[in-house]
Design a protein around this nucleic acid. Structure first.
Lengths: 360, 360
DNA sequence: TCCTTTGATGGGACCGATATCATTTGTCAC
DNA sequence: GTGACAAATGATATCGGTCCCATCAAAGGA
């Protein structure tokens, strides 16, 4: 048996005040169930604390009213928003979308919600978006791509929540980092081609000029050129063409441009599978045989690379697992309420050998 | 000259209370600037209301403290969260990602933030996610794909915010709808193939069984089969294979299965360009000439379809524009604070003729 | 029997903003 | 000089939850 509610009842006809919406609040539920607001709150957040009889009364009231708790209010009070912020260059890239999916999956069970922002590879937008995210008081922040604006870094340091940079390994991480070195991707690709005895080696990438920049792609190109230089090979067949983000079409036009300029080219590394696939398609149209005439290698292991003819040799990174792992780490971190020492995790790369590289 | 602040000053050493985070609040800014909290609030939300001298003092205090306003608190007070909810089947589909991008772009200037949830084509997840979204009190809800659970519909009706269903035209829309008829897509595709004189016509789609279902794809298939039936053609070459969501690989295996079962097939409509492209790739491997031996048509006009050989004939819908348009409508609607009569907008379709259909 | 402990629940303060209305100051016309 | 009005700013209540502690009943131990 429950005692009668002792909490003061609101006046029957409250002055209008700010109350516009008719949505039921926890107070409406508590009145209908004949319990205090706290009891309702407990039923919804930690039912074990409440007697089954009471619990059922409350749940019935919740159902009858169609009550949906207001997390905005709850967040303010508990100082936990349940948001994890994620900043991406774009969603229209299967690998970044996979990161989001992996993260979501890890966060789902702990009832966090991903708050996504993206920059369209625009550095200025990055800072604006970061402010937007911070204003929502996320409990952690996940970033893709290096933040370069000094302001942004400062805001992050001050944010007082875990910051994880993923899909790259910055030389000066803000805090945690889980990913791989895009520079190493470039070097690995070049090494792979060098080991196969190619000497006329080129690459397809976007131009790094302008505000819109793919920093991670640039790193890959830097590594690629470095490795060529170490091997005392020229880098004059490393083509910067168009602007980020790259696309199938980018690959196609860049390939044609490169081949026309350097007809003796033997092997090409594309900054992304998107470009690489576009290049293969353009090669088909130009009656250039892949890999007999030119070998092509990509990065990212997009699904389409597996399906084209010839299948694309590429460098694989498991972006979904990257998101998953990041999410798990954050859930643990937030549950233990301890902010451990900054960790740097290299998830590594894997060359996926398919048919687009000539065996020689 | 400003008068001295009259607002009661908090005790110098406040009792610890709940204050854990060290983040500055509007109160810290107001103290540093020597104005009231309201004045700070005004400077940040409607600077015109404040004298330039005062404004500068406040902005300096904001900068000095690194103050970032807490939108959670602001939302609770103003009863406007600035969130627009978007529910998608998945982010790993270029067209859905494009919807998100279009929406974001439209919402950016009005300073709304997209709150994304996705279901992975899982009906049960849909309802869970909807609750999560509603708990954040979005000012509008955008849905992709029909909601079928009765509960979900009920929750939406009760939500008291504009609801827009996009990328489909439901027979019984919850409120607003902007999109196209997936059923018409199917009929249009079949009509197109019929008009070209094909009589052995097949299709590639996912199996509709199980919890994980692509409702919109199913609608396309329904329209396709109906049109075949109206033409008194058999629908036995409409293949349901694998489960949603479809992929390049799905298209490849489904194509092989279909062709082996129905060697005399002349033309194939795939529920998505993803399947269609996969089919074209498999055809290359099987030495089946497209379109000479078999014509293939897709849906969605994904970029890859433009680049493959032969380029893919498909049905185009501008998903980015769809998102953009939806966003603009919502911004207007929310600005005028009037909830206009439910509107149904058909943005139509466009057949994009490329080389994958035989000219006969 | 009385005291302590535990479990269930309630009361009230509080989270950090903004809505609303009040107050103060300045301007201008008469 | 004075009153009317507008502009600038402040004081306070409030949004809808949860935290913290108080209260009360029941159970158990001495």
């Amino acid at each position: 048996m429950s005692r009668p509610p002792r909490e003061t009842t609101a006046p029957a006809d409250p002055k209008p005040g700010r109350r516009a919406s008719q949505r039921p609040t926890i107070r409406d539920v508590s009145r209908l169930a004949g319990v205090s607001r706290m009891t309702v709150s407990r039923v919804l957040s930690d039912p074990e604390l409440v007697l089954p009889t009471t619990r059922d009364k409350v749940l019935k009231a919740v159902a009858d009213l169609g009550y949906v708790p207001d997390k905005t209010a709850g967040s303010l009070s508990s100082r936990r928003t349940g948001f994890i912020a994620l900043m991406l260059p774009t969603l229209t890239n299967a690998n970044f979308a996979a990161v989001a999916h992996g993260l979501t999956e890890a966060l789902r069970e702990a009832n966090y919600h991903l708050l996504i922002a993206y920059t369209d590879y625009d550095m200025a937008e990055e800072e604006r978006q970061l402010l937007n995210l911070l204003a929502r008081r996320p409990e952690a922040i996940v970033l893709t791509g290096a933040m370069h604006r000094r302001n942004a870094s400062r805001m992050l340091m001050a944010a007082d929540v875990p910051v994880v940079e993923i899909a790259d390994l910055p030389s000066q991480p803000i805090e945690h980092a889980i990913g791989f070195s895009n520079y190493q991707v470039g070097r690995t690709a070049a090494r792979y081609l060098l080991d196969r005895g190619f000497t006329r080696i080129g690459a397809l990438a976007a131009s790094p000029d302008g505000e819109v920049t793919d920093h991670r792609g640039e790193e890959r190109m830097r590594g690629f050129e470095d490795e060529l230089r170490f091997a005392r090979l020229p880098t004059d067949a490393v083509l910067r063409h168009g602007s980020a983000p790259v696309s199938f079409h980018h690959g196609a036009t860049a390939f044609r441009t490169l081949v026309e300029a350097q007809p003796d080219i033997e092997a090409i590394f594309a900054v992304s599978d998107l470009s690489a696939v576009g290049a293969v398609m353009e090669a088909q149209r130009m009656n250039i045989r892949i890999p007999d005439d030119i070998s092509i290698m990509g990065f990212g292991d997009f699904e389409i690379g597996r399906e084209i003819n010839p299948a694309l040799t590429t460098i694989h990174v498991d972006f979904r697992a990257l998101g998953l792992r990041t999410g798990k780490m954050l859930v643990d971190m937030l549950a233990s309420d301890a902010n451990p020492a900054p960790s740097i995790v290299d998830v590594g790369l894997r060359i996926v050998e398919r048919a687009s590289i000539k065996d020689r």
